[in-house]
């Protein structure tokens, strides 16, 4: 799929929105404004956006703990996400899910997932539904290098091949499953080799490079839509923050995240390339930056001002309470 200027500006806007959202959550969390667990996606934006640019609203994705970026790229309402993280009645899940469970089925987002490896079986189901209903929709399971070792992931890749499902498995390998290195935890040398063992084509790409992700995802999604079955993509990437906010990251070599941010940042790489060769001016990107900053500012201030759920809400949305 050739990228138009509009596509590129949209991709930039989404990546910037994710970055700004995460940076702001980082600040607000540190200031004690946000409760619970949050896992930030900053640094990995090109993975979500590179895939999602190919998807329609009817396509479905399943996400991970680190789900904000997937939500934004799939089209979940940003102020509602922020309100959810603040535990507000106006949140995506009306304050009942929080950061780890933001979902919007109408937008094709089947939920961030608090269970590592929870998503791939669900995506087999979404892909099966598309197949049974005869649509050309696809399902994309985002997993981390941690979930890449879960049995659910293996079983799902096998089932996707057995049933020839329109499913894509995207592994965002950021080098650490919590505090344990991927190099230690992944028995096979390469995730892609492992996926091929399940009978599906696999690619390994630089997850900071929007264009690389976009190209690999384009091929995988085309195959899926045409009934050629599942594919696997490993995106090798860096996370700029800890596993969760408050993680001192003492397991990482000093300066690792900073070096990645300085030398291999997805937004910088993208901006450099499109201003050099796609006829996009820096000012156009700056305009987007300003608009995004205003959007996030607005999302935070409205989230802070929004009401908490009514206390009685703790008994609703379940078939019975005793």
């Amino acid at each position: 799929m050739a990228l138009t200027k509009n596509d590129l500006l949209r991709a930039y806007r989404l990546m910037r929105t994710i970055r700004e959202f995460e940076e702001r959550v980082h600040v607000e969390f540190a200031a004690g404004e946000i409760e619970g667990f949050v896992h930030l996606y900053a640094g990995e934006e090109a993975c979500a956006v590179g895939v999602m640019l190919h998807l329609t609203k009817a396509d479905r994705i399943a996400s991970t703990h680190r789900g904000h970026g997937h939500c934004i790229a799939k089209g979940v309402d940003v102020p509602a996400m922020m309100a959810e993280i603040y535990g507000r009645a106006t949140g995506s899940c009306r304050g009942k899910g929080g950061s780890m469970h933001i979902a919007d089925l109408d937008a094709g987002m089947m939920g961030a997932n608090g269970i590592v490896g929870g998503g791939p079986p669900l995506i087999c189901g979404a892909a099966l539904a598309a197949k049974v209903q005869g649509t050309r929709d696809v399902g994309v399971a985002f997993i981390g290098d941690g979930a890449s070792n879960q049995g659910t992931t293996f079983e799902s890749m096998n089932l996707a091949t057995v049933w020839n499902l329109p499913a894509i498995f995207v592994a965002e390998n950021n080098g650490y499953a919590e505090a344990t290195a991927a190099d230690y935890a992944i028995g096979a040398g390469s995730l892609a080799d492992r996926a091929e063992g399940f009978g599906m084509p696999a690619a390994t790409v630089d997850g900071h490079d929007f264009f690389a992700v976009h190209e690999a995802a384009g091929e995988a999604i085309r195959r899926a839509r045409e009934g050629d079955g599942p594919s696997f993509i490993e995106c090798q990437v860096n996370r700029y923050y800890g596993h969760y906010e408050g993680d001192a990251q003492t397991y990482r070599p000093p300066g690792e995240a900073e070096a990645a941010r300085a030398n291999h940042d997805c937004l910088d790489m993208f901006a450099g390339r499109v201003t050099a060769s796609a006829g996009i001016e820096r000012e156009e990107l700056d305009d987007i930056d300003r608009a995004v900053a205003a959007l996030i500012d607005g999302a935070v201030s409205s989230a802070k001002a929004d009401p908490a759920p009514a206390a009685s809400e703790y008994l609703t949305d379940v078939y019975i309470d005793y």
Binding site: P120, P121, C124, G125, A126, A129, L159
Partner: peptide
């Protein structure tokens, strides 16, 4: 775990 999960995912789809 794959097919029970797939049933759940299909139900949500």
């Amino acid at each position: 775990s794959a097919f029970i999960g797939a049933a759940v995912g299909a139900a949500a789809s």
